[in-house]
């Protein structure tokens, strides 16, 4: 069973059960500039869902999303296969908001870039509740701080 490694602030690291909605990859840099404001990003995801580029609801399979100072890792529940690995230094921002479908589910949008910062990608996951989404944001924010302080 996946043991949650607690949340000692010095080394923030935690695992969460989420579902994968979909992703929009390799957006050109000028496109990514229009996606800086949270509401622009949300509207972009909405539009992608309307256009069928992103589903409205995720697949049934639950996944384990791990957040640590190394970044975000998404693996199958039995942790046998890793689906996504987002290194912390390539994560631009993370956004969480109610999906508006009335079931209290929260969407998590992760904006990542490539090493040359020419393109960006949007990864969308669904959390079971806003509390879960908030704690994911907290651990990620702690991870950024942890890396920032260690760089000084």
């Amino acid at each position: 069973s996946t043991k949650s490694s607690g949340n000692s602030t010095s080394d923030a690291c935690a695992e969460f059960r989420v579902k994968y909605v979909g992703s929009i990859e390799k957006l050109q840099f000028d496109m990514s500039k229009t996606l800086q404001e949270p509401l622009d990003l949300i509207n972009y995801i909405d539009a992608a869902q309307q256009d069928g580029k992103l589903p409205f609801v995720p697949g049934d399979e639950e996944m384990v999303l791990g957040v640590s100072k190394y970044g975000v890792k998404v693996a199958s529940v039995d942790q046998c296969d890793v689906l996504h690995r987002h290194p912390l230094y390539l994560i631009v921002r993370m956004l969480c908001y109610d999906d508006g479908l009335g079931a209290g589910k929260n969407l998590l949008a992760l904006k990542t870039t490539d090493t040359r910062q020419q393109e960006c990608s949007i990864w969308v996951y669904q959390c079971s509740s806003s509390e879960q989404a908030q704690s994911i944001c907290k651990v990620l924010s702690a991870s950024f701080d942890c890396v920032l302080t260690s760089e000084k």
Binding site: M94, Y97, G100
Partner: peptide, 17 residues
């Protein structure tokens, strides 16, 4: 679709990008 509170976490490395 009505969007309630939005929480954002920005990587300090990309502040303003």
């Amino acid at each position: 679709i009505y969007k309630s509170a939005v929480t954002t976490v920005v990587n300090p490395k990309y502040e303003g990008k």
